[in-house]
Design a protein around this nucleic acid. Structure first.
Ligand SMILES: [Zn+2]
Ligand SMILES: [Zn+2]
Ligand SMILES: [Zn+2]
Ligand SMILES: [Zn+2]
Lengths: 183, 183
DNA sequence: ATTCATTTTGTTATGTTATATCATTTTATT
DNA sequence: AATAAAATGATATAACATAACAAAATGAAT
């Protein structure tokens, strides 16, 4: 609620180009299958092993567009497998994060499926398969969405350039209210 | 190390405008006194009570330009006060963060003194005294520095505007190597 | 097919960060 | 002085994450 106080029109409906949040009625099954198919492709190409456990954890992460805690995933796994210990979940998450298939949201200590893990774009991935990810996180509905913005990328690059700083990793998480939750 | 691959000159020495990190030989005592004086002023103006405990915690946070963990602060307090429990530290940090005198670095789960807590600029503070803060964090020397960049602010505002998102709070933390640590 | 090395998963224990709750003390107000 | 509000003390526990080692599964080479 801090922004745009001097220019309230900036995020008004007229100027809005796109709401990147998933809509309530959307076909989420296709989100999940796209994520799993993309993961298979990414792992196949990069030599990662998407084992049944890792695949299942990815599927559980994708149950919704809301970030999920590691211990929530642990509970879900325990429901279907009996005794499961934290390292089982964390190791799967470590793998998925390393492959760029899942991102950790530092401000929430939670995880979300990568919104850009499609097999097509591999250019911006580093040697370990990860790529910088920027998020909008709605504090009302709990959803988070990975956004790409050239202007933001440019500003970050420019900031690094002018300060002589070499970026290795980025955390950019903007929390507030999504367009739908403002009504 | 991901950025600037296509334009390596961008963060070369010629184009570098300023290194915002504190230099090794700088007069840190003046950093500390400026921070404490500023804190007194901010609290006086906003009606916050900078008690001896809170003031001391702020002083401990300012022992260096490296983010410090809550339990590190706890240990330091225990050294000088005997038995101190976690809530003592967390409550002091909560107060200091609420006043915008300290920031939490989500990606490190650690705290750092605000680099812009001077009494003069109050314009960008929200109703609770906080203001958005963006950080460069050196993974080599461990230092973190709060940076202000109009282009970055603009890009964030623009992103929010075009997506209809109302930002309440920002986490922007860029990790990598500071200019000094690249040599 | 059998051996061997590597990777993945299971298991137990522990480390790290943060909060809930209630008692006591301090401070401000009447 | 009495009262209310704020801050601190104290105890317990919650939530998040990793270390270390054993067992099982996988892949490669003989
Ligand atoms: Zn979906
Ligand atoms: Zn929402
Ligand atoms: Zn200093
Ligand atoms: Zn450095």
């Amino acid at each position: 609620m801090r922004q745009n106080l001097e220019n309230p029109a900036e995020n008004s409906a007229e100027n809005r180009v796109e709401n990147p949040f998933a809509q309530p009625g959307h076909d989420h099954a296709s989100c999940v299958s796209a994520a799993l198919d993309g993961a298979e492709a990414v792992c196949a190409r990069r030599g990662g092993r998407l084992t049944p456990l890792r695949r299942r954890v990815l599927e559980l992460v994708w149950r919704s567009h809301r970030p999920v805690g590691a211990y929530d995933l642990l509970a879900l796994l325990q429901d279907e497998r009996g005794r499961v210990a934290p390292p089982t979940v964390y190791r799967a998450l470590d793998f998925l994060c390393a492959q760029g298939l899942v991102h950790r949201l530092d401000s929430l200590q939670a995880f979300i499926g990568c919104g850009h893990a499609n097999a097509s774009d591999d250019s911006d991935r580093d040697g370990d398969g990860q790529h910088p990810a920027h998020f909008l996180i709605c504090q009302d509905c709990g959803a988070a969405v990975e956004v790409r913005d050239g202007q933001l990328d440019g500003a970050i690059s420019h900031l690094a350039g002018r300060t002589g700083f070499a970026i290795a990793d980025e955390t950019v998480e903007l929390r507030g209210r999504c367009a739908d939750c403002q009504n």
